[in-house]
Design a protein around this nucleic acid. Structure first.
Length: 992
RNA sequence: GCGCGGUUAGCUCAGCGGUAGAGCACUUGCUUCACACGCAAGGGGUCGCAGGUUCGAACCCUGCACCGCGCACCA
């Protein structure tokens, strides 16, 4: 520290050291190192993203772990990179191009041109978040930075696709998917969030087509039928009075009108899908409706169809809950997941009535055609009302799926997509259940287990352009014979290759199926280079008329390979050998299914081993009011602004202090301010040391240790132990709290203040020894701080000269590799004669100081006024050095030690285990105030004594309590009684 | 509906079987020669409610209430 400024100025320090670390290649991991490995892969942020508070939390923790591991002597790899983030990036680029007026839709550019623009965007913005991480101090090995669309990475994705395709785990199917009408792509179940939505429940009636021929249709003639045929039930209104309360199935039921027609009432939230209904379902056990199974109803929409095309069957299905709604369910296999399943069970046709954009198509009929689905809902209800079929519309709130990203209701839609049956699921589930892989906090293991227990196949294809294009080429043939004509050529092309799969759909049976159309799929892993074998193969199959699937893969289909695809897989690289499985993964619980679970499965499937040993789930950062941080709320501070204002260390420290294990964090700028103040305190404490002059002192002379020296060494020891515990449990907020308490309260407030009695004196040997203690404590403390506040600790490490004291590779060059402090061992404590009684004495003396300061305050004497104290030791002598400390800390003119002091009038007194302290007031005291204070004290002591006495009086207590506890209580009682006696005599003295 | 968190000082949170704690905020006094991004002293809580276990409960058990989250959903 050549120039010693009064306050710490991070701006002038941080960039300098970051560059120094980079230049020194201190972040670079060596896979050939003999040191034990520690590794961590960054959760790759979106390539076009900017740093958020969530990133700050997450990456600070990773940096702390990485830096601590280096100091522990580990070979550390913290592997950074970014994710291509399919939908997010494509949307951003497309929106920007639209805004600039360049295009109206991405089709205007075409796929290749558009992708070119995305790449340009990536080159321009992709570096931003990386630069921001550097600002934060992240010690990633930037020489190994990866991107999920790097060429090598893409090859991994393709290889994985082929392998899973070969195993039959990836398949193509027309299924009900979550369709996003805004982004026009399918989504996985995980990308759908349920949201409450206010709407209406529409009740409408449909006529049973077989009525009014009722008598012939009911062979059994049960209860329900009677009701149906009862003339009193002709009213079409289901008034509320009819029902007998909730769950009363008599509330609804078939109704026969005056013409003998039977009507069923259906409740729905989506009348616009009526044209897509292909059945009406009732529960076969429902007495009201069971007899109608096998009959038909007349579907009211589209209205223009002839009657015979409106007939849809009434089917029986256990899925129908007869307590809910009217007990009659309309079945729309093409637009509802549950209905699709019913449709499959009953071989119902599926009629699509809503198109990809969420608009009604031709099949929806003349009334709805071309309308948006929500508009169509209103129109459909109006139409039903017009026909007299709408019985009522009541307000209704239900949960519906939203596209998480586009924030619009998803449309369940039948669509041909690629699906993955998850591999290695059992092993992946077991590894967490058994505790071999640890989750912190542990409770997430249960969430994980639950999800793993209900795995649904993963829809992996997306109708986007930005991403890994599906490596499958296909060609349709009108009949099998046409396919056979190409077969020889295909076989020739793919002979002796392992990186391909050929499949025909549907499977062809010889002879009889010859005239059915089929498709041939060839799945190839291209390697990207222009004149490779694979490229030739692809060229050849394209010449045969095969075309590549236009879809890309879900972003997470590349992310789930991150822990090994970034390390050179599929080669068995030295990096993989050294650093896989990784040690810790630090991420948010919101991507436990998206990412964590899938990485575990990929790890087992492709590496045969778990990808990480520990997973630390951070909390979610919220604002002061507990709201999630979001751009639209504007409640998300820009971490870079905070760094500019307070410094990166301050931000790190503040966030860590506020982040208890796995709990959400209510973030407030005050946290950062606290961090800033703390760094400044550290700075100034070091500055104080510098101002005492002299070289770094190495040797501590045990003979010259003061009680304060011994105390602070013991406190340092305690702090190291606490920190180690906190690290073992991933409790970073505990760690920062310990650092704060140790450094600010114990070291600065007590030790440094006490040491001034030495520095203001003139015993040179004693001064040198105190400096040696300070240097010992500070050089350890800076190391304890380094993982949390790397910049200021490095600055001070050099500025104080501690670096020069260390071997080159162990702190001599950088604090990054200085060894993590060990708790003091027996040899040390014996040599320096440290014992628990030293600790107790110093604490006791400090307590005496507090009491003395109280006396001064009670007497209303200004802190600056030098006054005389008299100390009457209870036994033996107090060391002169301790008396000096008393004098200094009490800001006393003098502390007179007098074993025979007999206080006269107007002398404030306080009794203490070390002795009595007197403050002669020479007539300045406010007697009344003092009496009031003592009376209050007496009340407190009396209350405490009653509490303890009651415990001791309980006969059970003495019998059942451990002896130590009993003894402690007895002692405590004695202490309170002593204090009480003192206060009483003090009160008496004042009455003189 | 099932599950998971939470409920402790004005605020944010520790404590998880033996004298209720921290930081911030608040009050008072300090331009004390490292630091006003500071120093010193202080006020403030029947630990959500009701039972139970125990010599003893903020802490363990059982219910309940409220807040938050996740999963599954019924039209």
């Amino acid at each position: 520290m050549s120039e010693i400024s009064k306050t710490y100025e991070p701006q002038s320090v941080e960039d300098k050291w970051y560059q120094f670390w980079l230049d020194g290649k201190f972040f670079v991991a060596n896979e050939k190192s003999a040191k034990p490995a520690y590794s961590i892969v960054i959760p790759p942020p979106n390539v076009t993203g900017v740093l958020t508070m969530g990133h700050v939390l997450n990456n600070t923790i990773q940096d702390i772990l990485a830096r601590k591991a280096r100091m522990d002597g580990k070979e550390v790899l913290w592997l950074p990179g970014t994710d291509h983030a399919g939908i997010a990036t494509q949307t951003v680029v497309e929106r920007t191009l639209k805004k600039s007026g360049e295009i109206k839709h991405r089709d205007d550019l075409g796929r290749d041109k558009f992708l070119e623009r995305v790449w340009q965007w990536k080159e321009k913005h992709g570096g931003i978040i990386i630069q921001q991480l550097k600002k934060l101090g992240a010690s990633c090995d930037w020489t190994r930075e990866r991107f999920t669309m790097d060429e090598a990475y893409s090859r991994c994705v393709q290889k994985v696709f082929v392998e899973l395709y070969k195993k039959g785990l990836i398949y193509r199917g027309k299924r009900m998917v979550n369709w996003c009408p805004a982004t026009l792509t399918a989504l996985s179940d995980e990308e759908v969030v349920m949201k409450e939505q206010r709407g209406s429940l529409y009740y409408f009636k449909v006529q049973v087509a077989e009525s009014p021929l009722t008598p012939a249709l009911s062979p059994d003639g049960g209860e329900g039928e009677k009701r149906a045929a009862t003339p009193t039930a002709v009213s079409l209104s289901h008034s509320e009075e009819e029902g007998q309360g909730e769950g009363d199935t008599s509330k609804f039921g078939p109704i026969t009108d005056s013409k003998g027609r039977i009507w069923l009432t259906i409740a729905t939230t989506r009348p616009e899908t009526i044209p897509g209904d292909t059945a009406v379902a009732v529960n076969p056990k429902d007495p009201r409706y069971a007899k109608f199974i096998g009959q038909h109803v007349i579907r009211p929409l589209p209205a223009e169809l002839p009657r015979e095309q409106k007939l849809i069957p009434i089917i029986g299905d256990e899925h129908v809950d007869f307590e809910f709604g009217t007990g009659v369910l309309k079945v729309t296999p093409a637009h509802d997941k549950a209905d699709f399943e019913i449709g499959t069970r009953h071989h119902l046709p599926a009629i699509e009535v809503i198109d990809a954009r969420g608009q009604m198509n031709d099949a929806a009929g003349a009334d709805l055609r071309g309308l948006d689905r929500f508009k169509a809902r209103k129109v459909a209800a109006e139409k039903l009302a017009e026909f007299g079929a709408l019985e009522k519309e009541e307000p209704y709130t239900n949960n519906i799926g939203y596209s998480e990203r586009a924030d619009v209701p998803i449309e369940p839609r039948l669509s041909e997509q690629w699906f993955l049956k998850y591999p290695s699921a059992e092993k992946s589930r077991a590894v967490v259940d058994s505790g071999r892989m640890k989750f912190h906090p542990e409770r997430w293991a249960k969430v994980y287990d639950h999800w793993m227990g209900g795995l649904q196949d993963w829809c992996i294809s997306r109708q986007l352009w930005w991403g890994h294009r599906i490596p499958v080429w296909s060609k349709s043939y009108a009949d099998r014979l046409a396919a056979v004509r190409d077969e020889d050529e295909i076989n020739r092309l793919v002979r002796n290759r392992k990186d391909f799969v050929v499949r025909r759909e549907p499977e062809i049976k010889f002879a009889e199926d010859n005239d059915k159309p089929c498709r041939v799929f060839i799945c190839v892993a291209p390697d990207g280079s222009a004149d490779s074998d694979q490229s030739n193969l692809i060229r050849s199959i394209e010449q045969l008329g095969f075309t590549q699937d236009p879809d890309v893969l879900d972003t997470w289909f590349s992310s789930w390979l991150w822990p090994f695809a970034t390390m050179g897989w599929p080669e068995q690289t030295d990096t993989l050998k050294k650093f896989y499985p990784t040690t810790d993964l630090v991420t948010g619980p919101d991507i436990i299914f998206f990412w964590v679970a899938r990485m575990i499965m990929a790890g087992y499937e492709f590496m045969g081993e778990m990808p990480f040993k520990n997973v630390y789930f951070t909390g979610i950062i919220r604002d002061k009011q507990g709201r999630k941080m979001s751009k639209s709320l504007g409640n998300s501070p820009d971490p870079l602004d905070l760094i500019a204002k307070f410094g990166a260390d301050a931000l790190r420290f503040g966030v860590m202090r506020a982040a208890p294990l796995g709990q959400d964090i209510l973030f407030d700028e005050q946290n950062v301010e606290l961090g800033r103040n703390f760094c400044n305190k550290l700075w100034n404490a070091c500055r104080f040391r510098q101002m005492q002059g002299g070289e770094v002192q190495g040797e501590i002379d045990p003979k010259l240790l003061t009680s304060d020296d011994k105390w602070i060494l013991l406190k340092l020891d305690a702090a190291i132990r606490e920190l180690n515990t906190a690290f073992a449990e991933y409790k970073f907020s505990d760690a920062t709290a310990t650092l704060y308490r140790f450094f600010w309260n114990e070291y600065c407030d007590w030790y440094v203040e006490a040491s001034k009695s030495v520095f203001f004196g003139n015993d040179a040997a004693q001064k040198a020894n105190s400096l040696a203690v300070i240097d010992f404590v500070l050089s350890h403390t800076l190391r304890l701080f380094h993982p949390f506040i790397p910049f200021v600790s490095e600055e001070l490490w050099h500025g104080m000269g501690y670096a020069t004291d260390m071997p080159e590779n162990q702190g001599g060059k950088t604090i990054m590799f200085a060894p993590w402090p060990k708790p003091l061992d027996d040899e040390f404590t014996n040599f320096y004669g440290l014992s628990a009684s030293d600790e107790k004495f110093a604490e006791s003396r400090n307590n005496l100081v507090v009491k003395g300061r109280n006396l001064r305050r009670e007497a209303n004497l200004p802190a600056s006024k030098k006054i005389r104290f008299v100390f009457k030791p209870v036994a033996g002598q107090m060391a002169a050095s301790d008396v000096e400390v008393l004098k200094l800390l009490l800001n006393a003119e003098t502390v007179e030690v007098n074993a025979n002091f007999a206080p006269g009038k107007n002398v404030l007194a306080v009794r203490h285990e070390l002795g009595e302290l007197f403050l002669p007031l020479e007539g300045l005291i406010d007697v009344e105030a003092e009496r009031a204070r003592i009376k209050k004290e007496i009340e407190k002591y009396e209350a405490e004594i009653v509490k303890v006495e009651q415990k001791l009086a309980n006969p059970n207590f003495a019998q059942k309590v451990p002896p130590a506890v009993l003894e402690e209580h007895k002692q405590r009682l004695g202490e309170w009684q002593n204090k009480l006696a003192q206060s009483r005599s003090a009160l008496a003295a004042l009455q003189n």
